[in-house]
């Protein structure tokens, strides 16, 4: 059942913030599990759109998406509560490290644990492509576009912001062509 309480919003993003290693993309399977599958705050498609928006704006993906999703669930108060949830774990962990043991990364036990976490992060991001991408790539045209954009960014080193702008341009262009019945282009 859908539960939109502010406390649940805070706790959910606190949990996400406390387990986000390896940057924004690695946490996508975690966010999707919590926000789409468990609490049903967003649909599959709304989730991809939220990512598109938060990626196009400055700031960390984790912070931006907590604000965006919080706003969707409970307005401005929800946005701020979700943001505090996602930021506080990392704030306190770093504060404790800065105060007590700035050299904690040199402990062999810590290094060994991270030798395991690092490859798992690669797996998390790869799983994000499947989990987030599956509803999008059901359309053959989208699969083609993903391959094309990937080629542009990987082989020709096109900047991610340019890829985002290109995506918007392609979407608008295809829509324009579809609107004109005399056009021979048939999207989908």
């Amino acid at each position: 059942m859908k539960n939109n309480s502010l406390l649940l919003l805070f706790l959910t993003f606190f949990k996400i913030g406390a387990t986000t290693f390896g940057g924004g993309y690695a946490m996508l399977p975690i966010i999707k599990r919590e926000v789409v599958e468990r609490h049903e705050w967003l649909s599959d498609e709304e989730f991809v759109d939220a990512l598109a928006v938060t990626q196009s704006l400055p700031g960390a993906i984790a912070v931006n998406s907590s604000i965006f999703i919080g706003h969707k669930v409970r307005g401005i108060v929800g946005a701020l509560i979700a943001m505090f949830g996602s930021v506080l774990p990392s704030f306190f962990v770093i504060l404790i490290i800065a105060i007590f043991f700035a050299r904690f990364t040199e402990y062999p036990m810590v290094q060994a644990a991270f030798a395991g976490i690092r490859p798992a992060i690669a797996a998390l991001i790869a799983a994000a492509v499947l989990k987030v991408g599956r509803p999008v790539m059901k359309k053959r045209l989208n699969l083609l576009l993903v391959a094309l954009f990937l080629l542009l960014s990987q082989v020709f080193s096109i900047h991610p912001m340019v890829i985002i702008v290109l995506g918007i341009a392609v979407g608008l262009l295809l829509f324009r062509l579809k609107e004109q019945p005399e056009s021979e282009v048939d999207p989908q």
């Binding site: 990512l51 490859p119 999008v136 954009f149 985002i164 324009r176």
Partner: peptide
């Protein structure tokens, strides 16, 4: 409808960026 059209192109762009990140991270982590 124009906002929806923009998003229909943005979606594959976002997926391609995540796929690109997979390649980048895998190269340094594996």
């Amino acid at each position: 409808k124009w906002v929806q059209a923009a998003f229909s192109g943005l979606r594959p762009a976002v997926i391609s960026l995540i796929a690109g990140a997979t390649i980048f991270v895998a190269r340094t982590a594996l």
